[in-house]
Simulated assay, not measured.
Amino acid sequence: MQPVSVAAIYLLFWVLTLFAVLPFGVRTSEEAGEDKVEGQANSAPVNPRLGRKLIWTTVISAALFGLFWLNYVYEWVRVEDVPGWR
C-alpha cells in the first residue's frame, strides 16, 4: 500500500472517530447550572474539552487503523468472504 493511501485511510478513520467522540461528556449551560451568554444556543456546550477529545480521537483511530492494517496484511476478512459478493 502506498504511503499516500495509508495517510488518506488513516485520515478517514480519524475524522469518523472525531465525529463519534465529540458528543461524549458534553454538558449544556442548563445542565451545568450556569447562566447562558446572550445569543448562545441552548445546545452549546459549557466546556467541550477539545484537547482531550483530539487525543482520544487519535488513540482510538490509531487502534482502529491498526486493526485495518493487520487485516490488510493477514487477510482475515477478504472481499470474497462478504456474503452477496458475486
Rank of each mutant, 00 (worst) to 15 (best):
M1F: 08
Q2K: 10
Q2P: 09
V4M: 12
V4H: 09
V4Y: 10
S5C: 00
A7C: 15
A8I: 02
A8V: 00
I9V: 14
L12C: 14
L12I: 08
W14I: 01
V15A: 12
L16P: 00
F19E: 08
F19D: 03
F19C: 05
L22W: 03
P23N: 09
P23E: 05
F24D: 00
F24V: 06
F24L: 14
G25A: 11
G25D: 07
G25C: 07
G25K: 06
V26F: 11
S29E: 12
E30R: 15
E30M: 10
E30F: 13
E31T: 07
A32L: 11
A32V: 06
A32K: 14
G33K: 11
D35A: 14
K36D: 12
V37K: 15
E38K: 15
G39C: 13
Q40A: 12
Q40F: 03
A41W: 10
A41E: 13
N42K: 12
S43C: 11
P45C: 11
N47D: 12
P48I: 03
L50T: 07
T57G: 02
T58A: 03
I60T: 02
I60A: 01
A62F: 04
L64K: 03
F65Y: 06
G66F: 00
L67F: 13
L67V: 12
W69H: 06
W69F: 10
L70Q: 11
L70A: 13
Y72P: 00
Y74N: 10
E75Y: 10
E75N: 14
R78I: 06
E80I: 02
D81K: 03
V82A: 05
V82S: 06
V82T: 03
P83R: 13
P83A: 00
W85H: 11
W85I: 15
W85N: 10
